[in-house]
Structure formats: C-alpha cells, structure tokens
C-alpha cells in the first residue's frame, strides 16, 4: 500500500538526499504526506457516499414497490417515493443526499418512519465496543504471539512448535467468524453457562462476540507476524545488531520489532478491516442490538435509508482504520514518510 501511494503522492523535489533542511516555501515532508493521506480518505468517502446513493438507482424496477411488497396500496408507494425523493431529477436527489448526509440527517426508515439517526444513536455504542475490543485483542495477541513464535522457530529451531503453530493457526484462520460464534454459543449455552450468549446486558456480554471475531483474525495476523519475523531476523542489519553484541531484548525489540511491524502491517493491515465487518455477522449470532443486526434486518426488508446509512458508517470506519494504519506505517518506516506515502 505504501509503495503505490508513494508514487501517487510524491513530488519530484522531495527526492535526493538533502544535507540542509528544505529551503522555504515547501511544507515539511510529513505535512505533505499527511495531506495526501487525508485527501485520499476524502476521495474514498466521497466514492462510498456516491455509490450508496446510486445503489437505489441501480435497482431494476421500482425499488419502493419491491420494498413494500405487491400488496401495498399504490398511494402508500407514491408517498414513500416522494419521501425518498425518487420523483426528483437525479442531480437534485444527489445534491439533497449530500446536504442531508453532511448535516447528519440520514432520513427516515421506510418501515418504522423513525429517523435513522435515532436508530444509529441507540446502537452505535455496542458495535463500536465490539470493534475496538476486537482490534485491540487482535493486535496484542498477534504481535506478541507472532514475535515469540517467530524468534523461537527461527532457522529450523523447534520444528515441532512450528508445525503445531502452522496447523493451529491454519485451522483457526480457516474458520469463519460466524462459525466460531455458533460454536461459542453451543459451548456456552449448552455446556458452560459462564457468559451470556444473547443480548447486550452488561460488560461480560461482549466477551464472546470479541472472542468470535478475534480468533480468526488474530490467527491470520499471527501468521503474518511470524513470517515477517522470520524475514526480518534474516536481514543483514539483524546480523549487524548481533555483531554489535547488543543484548537479545534490544536486538529483537529495538531493531526487529519496528521493521517487522512495517512488513506485518503492510501485509496484514487488510485483515484489520475485516474485523469491522465481522461485527455484522457476530452481532446477529449473539442477538446484540447493534448496527450489524440493524443492517441485516434492513437489507432483508429493503429499508434503503437504513442500509445506506449503516453502510456509509461501517465503510468510513474501515477507511479511517486504513488511514490510521498508513500513518502508523509512515511513522515506523522513515522511507515511506519521506516519500509522502
């Protein structure tokens, strides 16, 4: 990701080693780099908004008739059409859509006639809790586990550990989150009744959903971290660090970690995006009133304003997360920082 954006973002004059600081006029490299990243985020969010707007236009036939079903009276269909603004010309609809989205007015639900913003307000906290907890758990587990196993199995050491690790993470990564969630429901509903398996009644009701998302994504990330560790440990500069006779902790944490994080984030950053969508599935299994359950309900009932809003929110969350990863990469890897990635 960094290389490509470096090519888009860089400007010719930033090249070449410079002994003295840049002379006047030009903003420092990190400002330009952050600027480019923000611009990319804005363009991406614009694309998401436009696509979700066009979604209704793309639907063949009459979307409102599809949503309300063949039995709905024609007057009601017409009323909802006007409510959605579908009787307006396309450009007017688009401008109106932008105006509403920017002011936080997401329209009214086709079914309940409640403002979508109320629905979002009521449910966003649950979803955000699950996403943030899963992201934290995934990052901590995968970096610690991957680094430890990577160092322990480097250059054919402990072949049994490596085989076991590869098998275990392979299986865990191949299990989709909804399956893990169902398995957890089975375990904790039928066998142990330690954690609640449905609803969002207290802090402990988030344990199982977080676990369901984390298992697969942490396994995938842990593999990425382990293989990045293996690659980084084989680099010449790691040999040099050992030749400088630095203590082992310093060799692995000061010299190894930043480099392997760069590699692991570049490869595994996308994995973190799937954590956000994992919540859609997992909320449904554990019957948690969040954005995911609302989205699936709205998709089945064709409640377009709700679908649009939640899609935009979740997509923006993913895009912002990617921006954060990019910024982290820039901070870790001085080369990408210079070149405005």
């Amino acid at each position: 990701m960094t290389t490509s954006t470096a090519e888009v973002g860089e400007s010719p004059a930033s090249a070449g080693p410079r002994l003295r600081p840049a002379r006047g006029r030009r903003a420092p490299a990190w400002v330009r780099s952050a600027g480019w990243k923000l611009l990319r985020l804005v363009i991406s969010i614009w694309a998401v908004l436009t696509l979700t707007f066009l979604m209704i236009q793309f639907i063949p036939g009459d979307p409102v008739r599809l949503a309300l079903g063949p039995d709905a009276p024609a007057s009601l269909v017409e009323e909802r059409r006007q409510q959605l603004g579908l009787d307006q010309p396309l450009v007017a609809q688009y401008l109106d859509y932008w105006g509403r989205m920017l002011t936080g007015d997401f329209g009214d639900s086709l079914l309940s006639q409640q403002p979508v913003s109320l629905l979002v307000e009521a449910r966003i906290a649950n979803t955000a809790t699950i996403v943030v907890l899963s992201l934290l758990a995934t990052s901590v587990l995968s970096i610690l586990g991957g680094l430890l196993v990577g160092v322990a199995t480097h250059r054919g050491r402990r072949p049994m550990l490596k085989t076991g690790f590869t098998m275990a993470t392979g299986v865990a990564a191949a299990l989709p989150d909804f399956l893990v969630a169902v398995g957890l429901v089975f375990l904790f509903a039928v066998t142990f009744t330690v954690f609640p398996v449905a609803g969002a009644s207290g802090a402990d009701s988030f344990v199982l959903p977080t676990l369901a998302i984390t298992l697969g994504s942490a396994a995938t990330m842990m593999r990425v971290v382990r293989s990045s560790t293996a690659v980084v440990l084989d680099q010449d500069y790691m040999l040099v660090a050992r030749a400088k006779r630095l203590p082992a902790a310093r060799v692995y944490l000061r010299h190894g970690l930043p480099n392997l994080l760069t590699a692991a984030l570049t490869l595994g950053g996308l994995q973190l995006g799937t954590v956000v969508t994992g919540t859609i599935v997992v909320e449904n299994v554990f019957a948690i009133p969040g954005l995911g359950t609302a989205l699936v309900q709205a998709l089945i009932t064709r409640d377009y304003p709700v679908v649009q809003t939640i899609m935009v929110l979740l997509a923006s969350a993913v895009l912002v997360l990617n921006l954060l990863i990019d910024v982290a990469l820039g901070a870790l890897d001085p080369r990408s920082k210079r070149q405005g990635g």
Binding site: S4, F58, V307, L314, L319
Partner: peptide, 28 residues
Amino acid sequence: SAFQSVVNVAIAFPALLTAMFVGTVIGI
C-alpha cells in the same frame, strides 16, 4: 499507479459490505 490507487482502496474495502451492496442492487 492510477490503477494501484484505485485497487488499494477497493481491496481495503471489506468484501462482506461489497457483497451486501451487490445483493441489494440485484436482489437477495
């Protein structure tokens, strides 16, 4: 490089949301 910037955004976009989007348009 133009291709890369488009694809990088597309690839970072979660597959489940894309699939839901398409499902909404052409029907479940």
